[in-house]
Amino acid sequence: LNSGVYFTLMDHLNFAVERHKKNINITNRVYWEIKNYYTEEFEVGNYALELVNDTFGIQLPKEEAANIAFHLINALGEKSDSKDGMKYAKMIGSIVNLVRYTLNMKMDQENIHYSRFITHVKFFVERFYADKLLSDQENELFEQIAHLYPQAMDVAFKIKDYIKQVHSIVIPNDELTYLA
Rank of each mutant, 00 (worst) to 15 (best):
N2R: 04
S3W: 09
G4F: 11
F7V: 02
D11H: 12
N14E: 12
F15T: 14
R19T: 00
K22T: 02
K22Y: 01
N23F: 03
I24T: 04
I24L: 11
N25Y: 03
I26C: 01
I26Y: 10
T27F: 13
N28K: 08
R29Y: 15
R29Q: 07
R29M: 09
V30C: 07
W32G: 08
K35H: 11
N36E: 14
N36L: 07
Y38N: 02
E41I: 08
E41P: 04
E43Y: 04
E43H: 11
G45R: 01
N46G: 10
N46P: 03
Y47C: 03
Y47G: 03
L51Q: 13
V52S: 04
V52M: 01
F56N: 07
F56P: 01
G57I: 12
G57V: 13
Q59R: 14
E63V: 06
E63D: 15
E64P: 05
E64A: 13
A65T: 06
A65G: 13
A66H: 07
N67M: 10
N67E: 13
N67K: 09
N67Y: 11
I68D: 00
F70D: 04
F70L: 14
H71L: 06
I73A: 09
N74Y: 04
N74W: 07
A75Y: 03
G77Y: 08
G77K: 06
K79M: 12
K79F: 10
D81R: 07
D81I: 08
K83E: 10
D84C: 03
G85M: 06
G85W: 03
K87S: 12
K90I: 10
G93D: 11
S94I: 03
V96S: 02
L98V: 12
Y101G: 01
Y101Q: 10
T102M: 00
N104Y: 09
M105E: 15
K106H: 14
Q109D: 09
H113P: 00
H113S: 08
R116D: 14
R116W: 01
I118Q: 02
V121A: 05
K122Q: 14
K122V: 04
F123L: 15
F124E: 00
V125Q: 02
E126Y: 11
A130P: 07
L133G: 06
S135L: 11
D136Q: 05
Q137P: 02
Q137V: 12
E138Q: 12
N139Y: 03
F142Q: 07
I145S: 01
H147V: 10
L148Y: 11
Y149S: 09
Y149R: 12
P150H: 04
Q151R: 14
Q151C: 02
M153E: 05
V155W: 00
V155H: 02
V155R: 05
K158R: 12
I159T: 03
K160I: 00
K160S: 13
D161V: 09
D161G: 10
D161S: 15
I163C: 11
I163K: 00
Q165I: 07
V166H: 06
V166N: 06
V166R: 06
V166G: 03
V166A: 14
S168R: 15
V170M: 06
I171N: 01
P172Y: 03
L176I: 11
L176F: 09
T177W: 00
T177S: 15
T177Q: 01
Y178C: 08
Y178D: 05
L179Q: 00
A180G: 15
A180F: 08
